[in-house]
Design a protein around this nucleic acid. Sequence first.
DNA 1: TTCGATTTGTCCGTATGTATC
DNA 2: AGATACATACGGACAAATCGA
Lengths: 82, 82
Amino acid sequence: MIESDGPVPPYLQLVEILAERIERGDWQPNRPIPSELQLVQEFGIARGTVRRAVAVLRERGLVFTVPQRGTFVAPSSAASTE
Amino acid sequence: MIESDGPVPPYLQLVEILAERIERGDWQPNRPIPSELQLVQEFGIARGTVRRAVAVLRERGLVFTVPQRGTFVAPSSAASTE
DNA sequence: TTCGATTTGTCCGTATGTATC
DNA sequence: AGATACATACGGACAAATCGA
C-alpha cells in the first residue's frame, strides 16, 4: 500500500489514500475516521506519519479533530448520499 | 438519541437535552428531575455520564441536588410560577 | 424497630482516543 | 517507537441517607 522508499513521502501517500476515501464517501460527514492506531496497523507505518497525514487533511478542510474524541469527516466533505 | 461516537461527548449531548426540557417547563421548579437510574435507562448511557451531565446543569444553576433525595429544578429556571 | 426500596456519593478497574514528549 | 498524560465512557460495587410499610 504505502511505499516507504519511493519518491513520495509516506505521509503524502496516506493523505491521498484517505482523501480519496473521504471524497468517495466511504466515511460519512460527522462520522469518525479510523483511529490513529487503526491506521497505524492498517498501513504498517508509524503513528507520527499518520498524525502528519491527518494534519494535512485538516488543513485541507476535509476533516476536523476534537481533542480526546477523535477525527471526523467534515460536514461538507462528501457527496450527498441522501 | 445519544450518539456515542460523534464529535460531541455524550454527557454534553445530555446536558443540552435536559436543559431544553427544563427551559421548556417539562419539569417544574422545585420538582425532581428523573433519577440518575431513570436517565441511565432512558438514554442507554452509563451512570457516570449522567452524573457528569447533571453536574454541568448544577454549575449552570439550572438544578440543585439534595443527597439521598434527588435533583430538583432550580426555582428560577422556568417561566410558569405562581 | 426492622426491613426493603430508592437515590445520591464514592471508588475501583478497563477501554478508547488524542496530546505530548 | 515507546511512554506518559488527559479526557471520556462503561461497568461494577459498596456506602450513606431517606422514606414507607
